[in-house]
Write a protein that binds this DNA or RNA. Structure first.
Length: 568
DNA sequence: AATGTCTGCCCC
DNA sequence: ATTCTGC
DNA sequence: GCAGAATGGGCAGACATT
């Protein structure tokens, strides 16, 4: 008996410390096989449960404190974190900043840390409690207080490894190759609701708790000249089985999941955040609508758009109007997950379509609080092709093609989105150090465009590179002498870490042109700068000179066309 | 009170 | 949002 | 195909600074 008690006590000390937690993370991070990662986490979860820190352990893994009061800024601001690190270990702020608080990349951090070595590690539960205290701070002067508390936390760490994972937590990037999907798969439905805030959709359904929205994958062109043809779509996505598919317009708004029961409405965003209060006016209008139309209970999947005088506003303008005046906000419903006490997730799309069509009016160019999207059953390829071209003429983002399948929360497999992509040649001006797996490379670049004899910043770019390409580009530009900031860009707000002395031309793909408060490229016709939405690297263009970039007139013209509602 | 800077399971 | 990567 | 982890523009809101 006595032995048993001793053993339990011993295990308690071993398992509930922060040292235990950081060792688990280290093990999971080093393991590349996802199955093994998950089983390692599962074992740790059992231990955490035994020592009553399961919830804290999960929240720590997902970098989520869930401090009930939704009002607070969740993260410790980067500069507060860096300052706390610098002061605790007597390092230069600029060094910490330069390495983005990644102690992995600090030379000899072990040596630096040795002075702080401790034999005993803090209990995981008390560490988590201290973290919560930090996250509950808000209001004037809270950043100073946060810094003090972060310094305390750092000094409580007993090993460099603990420091590493504490910093990652505070930066909200644990990056051990295991995140919400894997954690979710190990939880039961009630834990999922409580800890992750959503339900899986399997089994019972509770109205008022969001379901992961189904997503779409995008059709990607293989080269610039390639035309998007329905033939190719068939080959890539639908696998010769177009017959049962539906296609519809893709509206460029904001995803909203609507829940209605017992006379109350709740709204959820794409990331499952509750939006009811944010769109209060709309919520009230919906409540009246459902009440007046004798709805009992329902869950709808919608796109929120914004009308002005019978016209749908572009995305950027919708964002501007969203908070100050929701009078024009409107929902386009494109799916139904629950109706009249019936779960509809396992019905096929054609069945769900029939239901939402029967209870809502179709979308028109007059504003209605909520209306249903017009969905077309596939007849032939040329009809779908015409529909896609018409979508662009009508100023929409593109089209969606949907298999006649059940609703699969989180899946991207059954819906395909087709949008118009554009390409432009831009000039690389400088680079920014990367983070995480890119910490030894440049992780993104500043791009410019030639205008009036000078290069003006117009966008940053950080995706579209293979690892190999990024390494090659980093070596190339870092091995050349960097230059100082060009005279005319001294006031630019987002200075690159390295200005390049050699400016090459890159081909960049983007979706649309946007008005920009940050990027100065413009001309006299416009009192704002412009940039591009969704920029991605396509290839280098060594055959082009900087004068051949752009031209910016093309982008401006595209912007003005959208303003004038002239599409193609 | 006005302006500047930074952040977000933000929205896309 | 887009894209790449290892499994 | 999935899940994870890099990265984009730009908005409102929260804080700090002046």
């Amino acid at each position: 008996m006595f032995c048993c008690k001793q053993l339990r006590l011993y295990r308690f000390q071993q398992f509930s410390t922060f040292r235990w937690c950081s060792q688990v993370f280290d093990q999971i991070e080093k393991e590349s096989r996802r199955k093994i990662k998950i089983s390692l986490f599962q074992d740790a979860l059992k231990q955490a449960e035994e020592f009553k820190v399961k919830e804290e352990f999960i929240r720590f893994t997902l970098c989520d404190v869930n401090s009930q009061s939704q009002l607070i800024e969740a993260a410790v601001p980067a500069n507060v974190l860096y300052s706390a690190i610098a002061k605790t270990y007597n390092l230069e702020f600029s060094l910490v900043e330069r390495l983005y608080g990644e102690i992995n990349s600090m030379n000899n951090f072990e040596d630096v840390f040795n002075a702080h070595n401790k034999s005993t590690s803090i209990q995981f539960s008390s560490l988590f409690q201290k973290i919560q205290e930090i996250f509950e701070l808000s209001g004037g002067g809270c950043e100073e207080q946060k810094e003090v508390l972060v310094k305390d936390l750092l000094s409580l760490c007993s090993s460099a490894q603990e420091v590493k994972y504490l910093i990652r937590f505070l930066k909200k990037r644990m990056r051990i190759g295991l995140s919400t999907q894997s954690v979710s798969s190990l939880l039961d439905e009630s834990e999922r609701k409580r800890l992750l805030g959503y339900q899986s959709g399997s089994g019972d359904l509770q109205i008022g708790i969001p379901i992961q929205p189904q997503l779409a994958k995008s059709f990607q062109k293989e080269n610039k000249e390639e035309e998007i043809t329905m033939e190719k779509i068939k080959k890539k996505f639908l696998n010769d089985d177009l017959g049962g598919c539906y296609f519809e317009y893709k509206y460029d708004g904001e995803r909203l999941q609507v829940h209605y029961t017992n006379g109350e409405v709740k709204l959820f965003g794409r990331s499952l955040e509750e939006k009811t209060k944010q769109f209060k006016e709309l919520s009230n209008q919906l409540k009246d609508y459902f009440h007046n139309n004798k709805f009992d209970d329902v869950i709808l999947d919608c796109e929120m758009i914004c009308y002005d005088k019978g016209e749908i506003l572009p995305f950027q303008e919708m964002q501007n109007k969203t908070y100050e005046n929701s009078v024009y906000l409107s929902l386009v419903c494109f799916d139904i997950l629950y109706h009249n006490k019936q779960i509809l997730l396992n019905k096929t799309y054609s069945q769900r379509l029939q239901i939402y069509n029967s209870i809502l009016k179709p979308i028109t160019n007059q504003r209605q609080v909520i209306s249903h999207i017009i969905s077309h059953r596939f007849k032939n390829e040329s009809e779908m092709d015409r529909f896609y071209k018409q979508a662009l003429i009508d100023g929409l983002e593109g089209i969606m093609i949907k298999r006649d399948a059940v609703y699969s929360p989180g899946s991207r497999n059954d819906w395909l989105k087709i949008k118009k992509e554009k390409d432009i040649d831009l000039v690389v001006l400088g680079g920014y150090y990367g983070q995480g797996k890119r910490q030894q490379w440049l992780g993104s670049f500043l791009l410019g465009i030639y205008e009036n004899g000078r290069l003006h910043p117009i966008a940053k770019i950080g995706t579209g590179f293979s690892d190999q390409k990024l390494e090659e580009l980093t070596k190339r530009y870092m091995s050349k002498p960097s230059c100082s900031c060009p005279q005319h860009l001294v006031g630019f707000k987002d200075q690159p870490h390295v200005w390049f002395s050699q400016n090459d031309v890159w081909e960049v793909t983007y979706d649309t042109v946007s008005a920009s408060p940050l990027y100065p490229a413009q001309n006299s016709q416009l009192n704002t700068g412009i940039s591009v939405r969704f920029p991605r690297f396509k290839r280098e263009r060594p055959d082009k000179t900087i004068e051949q970039s752009g031209p910016i007139q093309d982008l401006l013209e595209e912007y003005f066309k959208v303003q004038r509602k002239e599409f193609f």
